[in-house]
Design a protein around this nucleic acid. Sequence first.
DNA 1: TAATAAACATGACATATGTCATATGAACTT
DNA 2: AAGTTCATATGACATATGTCATGTTTATTA
Lengths: 206, 206
Amino acid sequence: MKVLIVDDDALIRDGLKILIELEADFEVTGTAANGQEALEMCQKQRPDLVLMDIRMPVMDGVLGTKLIKQHFNTIKVVILTTFKDDDYIKEAIRSGAEGYILKNQPADSIIESLRAVGKGNTVFQREVVSALSTMLKDEKKPPVKLGLSDREQEILGLIAEGLSNKEIAERIYLSEGTIRNYTTGLLEKLKLRDRTQLAIFYLKNF
Amino acid sequence: MKVLIVDDDALIRDGLKILIELEADFEVTGTAANGQEALEMCQKQRPDLVLMDIRMPVMDGVLGTKLIKQHFNTIKVVILTTFKDDDYIKEAIRSGAEGYILKNQPADSIIESLRAVGKGNTVFQREVVSALSTMLKDEKKPPVKLGLSDREQEILGLIAEGLSNKEIAERIYLSEGTIRNYTTGLLEKLKLRDRTQLAIFYLKNF
DNA sequence: TAATAAACATGACATATGTCATATGAACTT
DNA sequence: AAGTTCATATGACATATGTCATGTTTATTA
């Protein structure tokens, strides 16, 4: 497997190169110091996999990954970094990287991760996943069937946008009184007291 | 590495067993047909890793994983399933599984994933990660510093809980009129029109 | 010390909100 | 056809909400 190493720190580049080339099934085709260079080298060398640092001058790893993915969609990218920062993780996943692993782990572990990625999987380090799991959206409880009619649903939604009864009436061509009646019905059905609670309910449950 | 295979389908159990035992560094210590059995076998065999199906009678894979993790925290669990259902993925991650891979991939790919997990990483299949990435919480914009006093913040929060002015007054020992005044101030500062909009604003931005 | 600013309060007022009884026409059921 | 249901409407009413001018107390600052 042909690997491109990207890191702004020459020492790390060289260290990784030596480590990886110890493995019979790996070959390091080159090294780059930032996303920009990485992109150029992908053009020339067509590696199978890019091992990418995040924080680098000129062009960081996230953008680098996005661009590489965009131009060469068969090239896998593994982010190898010291930061288990939430935002980086999220961005990395969105950018399409196949891995997000930290520099604090032993070489053989990194190698195995690269092999798994080579086989088409995606690898994260445990700590990274736990960080991730707290970022998961809370249950959007599937359509909490609450016997609301279409009209009621619609009006509830508009209330949750912050519209007044009059505005809602104008928006959907009904009289203000009718909207008031619907509001009363919604409050009754949802066992709430006022429109603010309706809005809160809606935002929390839909 | 000692592996326990858990699947309610005997054919799959046997197939996996044969496949895995072809690898010199793996040993299948046993098989189980559901989470319940899996838990018992973990007790007796102390495998390094459990390969776990999700949908099974008696006790499903998610609960099985949770229990195994709870009782034997050194045992790794990899979910191997046909479903890339959002809810399963989320639950699996929360349950502490080290992997979530699909049955639709070649054997060597699965083996590499297991090795990577053995080395302490977490492996997901690409499709699974893309499903995941849509589930990531949207940016909680960092505390949008909005020159609100402590009292204002507090009252805004209470409005967003759905309390009336009177209730807020009782809760924090101020007069209802004062709460009204604070509300007016909040509306002015946030350029909003009524308490419902305040609640919406709060829920969306804090 | 006098001036000023914060935090809280009051009362008067206009408007919005929510409740309720009642009504109408259209669609559907028996 | 008579009855029922549904969506919409109206008006009267009580209460909640929001605005504003003004006032008190206390702490801070010039």
